[in-house]
Amino acid sequence: MSKKKITIAITGLNNTDNPGPGVPFIRAIRESDRFDATVIGLAYENLEPGIYMNGITDKTYLIPYPSSGSEQLLARIEQIHRKNPIDVLIPNFDAELFTFIKNESWLRERGIKTFLPEMESFMERSKDNLSSFGKKYDFKVPKSLPLTGAHQVDQLFEELDFPVFVKGKFYDAYKAWDKHEVNTLFHKISAKWGLPVMVQEFVEGTEVNVIALGDGKGNTIGAVPMRKTYITDKGKAWGGITIDDEKMLSLTYDIIRKTKWRGGMELEMIRTRDNEYYIIEINPRLPAWLYLAVAAGQNLPEAMVRLALDEKLEPFHAFKSGKMFIRYSYDLIGDISLFESITVKGEL
């Protein structure tokens, strides 16, 4: 089979201790039998490791944060598109998805395809809406309350017991054992991610996740459950293993069917000792550990690009359990001229 030539632009090249999914996404696309891809990296920061890694991007451009205004971001995308026409754009950050979903038709008019969640599904699964999401679709979720001011802390604990998780709108989650800690975390998190800050009931159990891809019509194209075996102090999986947990899979299929989810998804759950499953987060994109699913037999990035290109494809029905990953750190050596290029010209 001859490979289809395609240009894919991808964000999330931050392979740091809080990694984005960009680099593993590219790795999966590079291994595809269907695509001969030219990969355009889109970086927000000039020290994102994916910019400098060999064999990852063919070209990388700096782009402005969506917070500086969607006009600026779109103008930059258009400028890049004129130099290197983009077929498919894969945004990988929760914080940028709103802008890209909102401007999906703008991108389409310029020939740039995406495969993103519908705005409604994207909003209703957000952390501050998780309780209503659980009620609407009948899934167990921990009690979560929004905190919009430090003065509400006392009031909050009429309904919640300690410990709790204090979470940012997009990222960051910390366990807190008393009101003083909640107060400190509220200021720390709100300064970084804005309001509201979420306070979530702590559910004891094992942290398990599912990576999945929905076709937007209620069908699950692929899903692989994973158990974290090593968690960093930022709560990120530094090691994990695929598990054959039918209940996790059926929950995932159910969520995708009920929400008609379109695009990548990561379901974060807690499995209690009584084998009950609580959904603690629904991330609206493929996670940074996505390469584990590829190794287990489901190349979900390839499938997502095919869906973006309106290709018909059969869902995956199997994966290998017992596949594990362990992240590692490694010092890349580069010359200052590389940094100069990305900093001064905004491209490398």
Binding site: T206, V208, R227, T229, I241, I243, D244, E246, S321, G322
Partner: peptide, 13 residues
């Protein structure tokens, strides 16, 4: 269970 006595439960990890 492997010959070396390593036990792996694929449903829980």
């Amino acid at each position: 269970v492997s010959e070396n006595g390593f036990v792996f439960d694929s449903s829980t990890g």
